[in-house]
Design a protein around this nucleic acid. Structure first.
Lengths: 245, 245
DNA sequence: GTCAAGCATTTGTCATGACATCTTGACGTC
DNA sequence: GACGTCAAGATGTCATGACAAATGCTTGAC
């Protein structure tokens, strides 16, 4: 029954349950708590740390939601075996690559205001033919083209004029502009390359592409962005963890 | 400020927070509460229903996790705009199709015990060359081939001898056999068809395929199943909702 | 008129206490 | 020896109370 020493800072603005969750996660990934091992019971852990049980439960719940811990009533809480893949998150590919130490590069292919097609209008919750930004970018890693991205944003919500989307990811810009993206719905599938894409992505004819289309909503529930992306499957995939609740 | 009438059954084994979550979700999908609308505050809703605030919060949290509601401190809770797509869940394709009213059909291509390759052994947390079940199935919808599925299960965990995997999905069998799948990790990508697949899936050479590989863990954190699947992208895609927490 | 301070509202966090329910193993009976 | 019962231990659910922090509006000073 492992009981690593966690340190709590009650004067920190970071919530206690989050401090515990972070350190517990660290203990798991570092191997201090072994895979398959059972944790001490909630009440004892809470007492050890001078916390209430709800707070301790909340901390554990964070890792349960991440798929790192599994709870069984009447038994206890165990560490899930198997290595953790980084899951799909509400970040952009740009952030993904930056975080993994690679040097992504973005080429702005086009940016213009167009009238929303029927599909776009529905996804963005605007009237058909309403003005929307249409942005096409090519993302590469080193000399290797990686993804072709086509995004749409409502003009009356976002002002993209003069924004440098080559040095800054779209999501980073939206964050800086005060948009808090809280929810996104996406669909992943595949298709063959089209003619123009073939040259841009440096893929031969009939190559398969991994496609993702996503609509993102800010913290007021309003649609902010809709995008259709195509990835070279040899260089990109989507990892995720599913948790049954 | 909407305040639909919810009914609670305190003698029911269904938790109160779940009863509320279900009815709240129903009110949202039915349009009784409009998209974008703000909910009454937690305390008032709790009082209206004769519940405590934590219970009411837990009910709301269920829908926040589903991406249907968005909370903002100091403001309130709002309904996310935009239609809901059914997300990727811990069910099998078989369940997916059955639920959507179609008639899936499964053909068992092969089932045998083999020694685990290095990759399989690592995914399933068994020793290399340990005996594992190797199951290959072709799933169709009507006359249309849909997916080619290749699954591996540790022999010392699951007994597949005599199991009819043509009328029953793999996950349904595992459930009946007492396995509770709680966590799964999966990776989605794409590739071109290989020779044998081309005929089985009725796709021409060089067609793109959507691929998914998944490792599933039971409620003790043990790896139970590893599978590599290939889908015809014209007939299948992965929908999911991402929520930032 | 504009900006800043203050206030009301609402969600976020945390504590304490209680009981329910499930699991497992020990014990006793048949 | 097999089976059922019981008790211990763990998580699941629910209630009450309190304070913190963010937001948006109102009010007041300049």
């Amino acid at each position: 029954m492992p009981s690593p020493r966690f340190t709590l800072d009650r004067s920190s603005p970071v919530p206690l349950y989050f401090q515990v969750a972070e350190q517990l996660e660290q203990a798991i990934v570092s191997g201090e708590i072994e895979a398959g091992e059972r944790l001490e019971n909630e009440i004892a852990m809470a007492q050890d740390l001078g916390l209430s049980r709800p707070t301790m439960r909340q901390a554990i719940q964070v890792l349960v939601d991440k798929g790192m811990l599994v709870r069984r009533r009447g038994v206890g809480t165990q560490v899930v075996r198997g290595q953790v893949h980084r899951p799909v998150e509400l970040t952009s590919l740009f952030d993904d690559l930056s975080a993994s130490g690679h040097q992504p590069h973005t080429k702005l292919l086009s940016i213009e205001q167009v009238g929303a097609s029927e599909e776009i209008a529905e996804e963005l919750q605007v009237s058909p033919d309403a003005p929307v930004w249409s942005v096409r970018r090519l993302r590469s890693i080193g000399e290797e083209p990686l993804a072709l991205m086509h995004n749409y944003l409502p003009c009356d919500v976002v002002e993209l004029g003069g924004v440098d989307l080559e040095t800054q990811g779209l999501y980073a810009f939206l964050r800086d502009a005060g948009f808090v993206i809280r929810v996104a719905r996406q669909r992943i599938s595949a298709r063959g390359v089209s003619g123009e894409e073939s040259a841009l992505l440096d893929e031969p004819e009939d190559s398969p592409l991994l496609t993702m289309q996503r609509t993102a909503y800010d913290n007021s529930g309003r649609a902010v962005e809709f995008g259709r992306h195509a990835y070279r499957p040899s260089l990109y995939s989507f990892d995720m963890t599913l948790v049954d609740r």
